[in-house]
Amino acid sequence: MNAFRLAGDMTHLLSIILLLLKIRATKSCAGISLKTQELYVIVFMSRYLDLFRTYYSLYNSLMKIIFLGTSMCIVWYMRSHKVVRQTYNNDEDTFRHFFLVLPCFVLALLVHRNFTFIEILWTFSLYLESVAILPQLVLLQKSSNIDNLTGTYVFLLGAYRGLYLFNWVYRFFTENHRVRWIPWLSGLIQTAIYTDFFYYYIRSWKNREKLKLPA
């Protein structure tokens, strides 16, 4: 464990907790893409399959359970909670996210390190996570008024994988100099997808004005 990875995990955890608190406190999920939340549940389920098989550390197991639990909780709130689900804007959240799941799965079948069940799903989860934010970003572009909590949530979610990039550089030089193209490139693409958002988010923060993404 290194500072970059711990910072990345804490940023990721903070983003999810922030979203959960926003939904619970305001009893609203306006501006949040259910599709991105569903994609994240698929990402965590396909990545944390080894949860009960391989024990790395208490931290690792605990965080996996927290990520799985909170992401499913958020989807439950948005789909089934009697009040919150009324605030979900279905006809704005239009991204066909199954057009992301299938290609990522096919790509994982073609490009992976070992052809084993766990490895294929792990690789699939990396590919899917790199594009999982797209429905949310598309929804933000349509939103005329992005509330601060939603903007901060997306910012933290994007920042966590950026911190992981530093973690991979650190591990490359301090551990075994192994090249890991699949997580590295997936993480790079994932972070690159946020650059546009990061620019407008930081600018709105500097100019103390409302966050607005160009349509």
Binding site: D9, H12, M63, E175, N176, R178
Partner: peptide, 10 residues
């Protein structure tokens, strides 16, 4: 081996 392939990460 498990250590190196980043599976110990989240």
């Amino acid at each position: 081996q498990a250590k190196t392939d980043l599976k110990d990460e989240l």
